[in-house]
Write a protein that binds this DNA or RNA. Structure first.
Lengths: 166, 166
DNA sequence: GAGCCTTCCTTGAAGTTTAAACAAAATGGA
DNA sequence: TCCATTTTGTTTAAACTTCAAGGAAGGCTC
C-alpha cells in the first residue's frame, strides 16, 4: 500500500491544453473588450455591464444589492463603481422610500445616451472576437458548457457575513 | 432605401444567452480561483501563473519580456508583480550578462517550495470547477473554441510603441 | 419596546492594474 | 562613426479592486 498522502490528480496533457487555451482566450478577450470600451467610452467592461443592467430594469433603476448580484460583484465594489459613474453623470442615486437603508442606482438620460452611442461598437467587438468565428454548433456547445461551469460556482458574498459557514 | 447609418447587427436572443453565460461563468470562475489562491497562498491567480511559468523554464528563469508575453500581461504590470513576489522571497531578479538592459526573473527555492505546496489545491479547484463537470466531448469542444477565439485577438502591447498603427 | 441579530450600503486603507513617460542599452543604417 | 530608432524594463500617478470595519435601519423575540 502506498503511503503517499493523496497524490493529487494532476491535469492530463490534453486537459492542460484545454485549460491553457481557456486562460489564454479569456484573458485576451477581457483585455480586448476592456480596452475597446476604455477607448470609446472611458470606462471598463464591468461598468458597461452596470449601465446595461440599469437600462434593462424597469424605470431604469435597481437596488444596489440587486445590481451587484446581477453583475456578480461585491456591494463594496459596486459602491465605488457607482460613485465613479455618478461623477460622470451617467448614474444617480436615489433613496428607497420603503426601506430607508436602501438606495436605487438610476440610469440618467446622459447615461442612456452614452449607452446608445457605444453599444454598437461593443456588440461589433463581441461579434468579431467570438460569434463571427464560431459555428452555430460551437456557439451552442459553448453556451451549455458555460452554463454548467457557472452552476458549480458560488455566487460572490454567499455567506460573506456568516463566517461560521465558511 | 433606408437612410439609417448602418444599423448594428445586435445579438440574437440565443447569442445573448451564450454571451451572458460566458460572462457569468468566466467571472465566477476567475473570482473563485483568485480567492482560493489568495486564501491558500496569499497571491492572486495571475501571480500563480507567473511562478508556474518560471518553474517550467530552463534554470527556472525567464527574461521579463518573455514572461510577460507568456502570461499575456504588460511589462509594466509584470514589473510590479515581480517586485511584489520578490518581497515574498519567491522570485529574485538577476541581470542578463549578454544584454545589459535585460533582467531575468528567477524562481527561488522558497518560490519552488510554495508552488509545490499550493499546486495540488489549485489543480483540485480547477478540476472541481471545470473538468469534473464536463464530458470528454465538451472538454474537447471547449479547447477548440478557446483556441479559435484566442487566435482572433491581438497579443497585448502589439504595436504599443507604434501609435500610428493603432 | 429593549435587546439582538441581520441586511443594506458605505468607507478607508492596502494592494493591484493601467497609462504614459522615461532612462539605458542595443540596433541599423548612412 | 554617428545618429535615429527600437527594445528593455522601470517608474510615477491615477484608477480600480479588495478587505475589513462600521453605521444605520429593519426584523425578531421575549
Amino acid at each position: 500500500m502506498n503511503t503517499a498522502p493523496d497524490e493529487p490528480r494532476w491535469l492530463t496533457d490534453e486537459e492542460q491544453r484545454v485549460w491553457r487555451a481557456y486562460l489564454h482566450a479569456t484573458t485576451l478577450l477581457e483585455d480586448h473588450l476592456d480596452r475597446q470600451l476604455q477607448r470609446d467610452a472611458g470606462m471598463p467592461h464591468i461598468y458597461y455591464g452596470l449601465l446595461v443592467g440599469l437600462a434593462e430594469a424597469p424605470r431604469r433603476r435597481l437596488r444596489m444589492t440587486e445590481l451587484a448580484m446581477q453583475a456578480k460583484i461585491t456591494r463594496s465594489r459596486l459602491s465605488h463603481a457607482i460613485a465613479r459613474l455618478e461623477k460622470n453623470g451617467w448614474v444617480r442615486r436615489e433613496e428607497c422610500p420603503s426601506d430607508k437603508r436602501g438606495q436605487f442606482a438610476v440610469l440618467t438620460d446622459a447615461g442612456t445616451e452614452v449607452l446608445r452611442r457605444i453599444a454598437p461598437g461593443h456588440v461589433a467587438a463581441v461579434r468579431q472576437a467570438m460569434f463571427d468565428r464560431l459555428s452555430t454548433e460551437q456557439q451552442q456547445a459553448l453556451g451549455e458548457i458555460m452554463q454548467i461551469v457557472a452552476e458549480g460556482l458560488q455566487p460572490r458574498e454567499a455567506g460573506a457575513d456568516l463566517p461560521w459557514l465558511r
